[in-house]
């Protein structure tokens, strides 16, 4: 059976095609803002082409993500925590928590021993701690996300920027630059500030366990952030190879269920 999942996020669209539990193709593209409909269609078409199949070969398509209602060809949609739970248990059967840090949201999903969701915690409505925060500061500093992560990772200095507010953090970064603080130290401070905010969501209700927590979402590709978050939270995260595709994979798994 071939199923597909499509995760329409604020920043990116991700598609995963699954045949009998194995990923046969995946594709991603920018969400396209006002042109999101076209971007969804294009990503879908490109991914099917890469898989060497047509839409009629697919038994079921499930959408997830903030834009899940904008996928006209989806047979069903699920909310993001369900997709998170599906993928975490598929990749790591022992998982008891999933932390998904995307462009616009931090989610913590707690699972019981049977895989049922027992709690979901979302971040408060604030830019600090989400992927968009990193992108904003990177843009201000003139880096790409990958560059800022790499540069930050090379620092062992512990200068501090505001961890409560994205705007203040950005201003702090600029002030530090004016004070002659090294770029890499500022980049590291930014990642640490973000880790503080993510950790506050982890502490909100049910604290994720040290060794059974999965980290997914685009931010989980950032090694400097992961290091800062593991240091701050004391959690050794389990991270899949392509954490940004986790939501789409979870939706594809749901379609196959």
């Amino acid at each position: 059976m071939i199923t597909a999942g499509i995760d329409v996020g604020i920043e990116n669209i991700k598609v995963v095609v699954l045949r009998d539990g194995t990923v046969i193709a995946s594709g991603t593209a920018r969400s396209g803002g006002a042109g999101r409909g076209k971007a969804i269609e294009q990503t879908w078409t490109d991914t099917l082409k890469a898989a060497g199949i047509s839409a009629t070969d697919i038994t079921k398509v499930v959408a997830t993500g903030q834009g899940k209602g904008d996928v006209p060809f989806a047979n069903d949609s699920i909310t993001e925590p369900l997709a998170d739970a599906r993928v975490a248990l598929f990749l790591y059967p022992a998982a008891r928590s999933v932390v998904d840090v995307g462009a616009d949201q931090i989610r913590v999903v707690s699972l019981d021993e049977h895989g049922a969701i027992t709690e979901v915690v979302l971040n408060q409505k604030c830019a600090a701690g989400i992927g968009t925060f990193l992108r904003t500061v990177a843009r201000r500093l003139g880096y790409t996300l990958d560059e800022m992560s790499r540069i930050g990772g090379s620092s062992d200095n512990r200068v501090v920027v505001n961890d409560a507010c994205c705007v203040f953090a950005e201003l702090d970064a600029i002030n530090l630059l004016h004070d002659g603080v090294a770029w890499q130290d500022i980049a590291r401070a930014i990642h640490r500030a973000m880790a503080v905010r993510i950790n506050s969501v982890l502490s909100d209700k049910v604290r994720p366990a040290k060794d059974t927590t999965v980290l997914i979402g685009g931010v989980a590709r950032n090694p400097t952030l992961i290091a800062a978050l593991e240091e701050r939270s004391g959690i050794n995260f389990m991270i899949p190879d392509q954490p940004e595709f986790a939501g789409a994979l979870g939706a594809a798994l749901d379609a196959a269920a």
């Binding site: 903030q66 909310t79 993001e80 925590p81 049922a116 969701i117 979901v120 979302l122 409505k125």
Partner: peptide
């Protein structure tokens, strides 16, 4: 008040309870 976010949160809350 963020209507869209609240309705999304209600969906998440309900679906996560099955």
């Amino acid at each position: 008040q963020d209507e869209t976010r609240l309705l999304d949160m209600l969906d998440v809350w309900m679906e996560s309870q099955g």
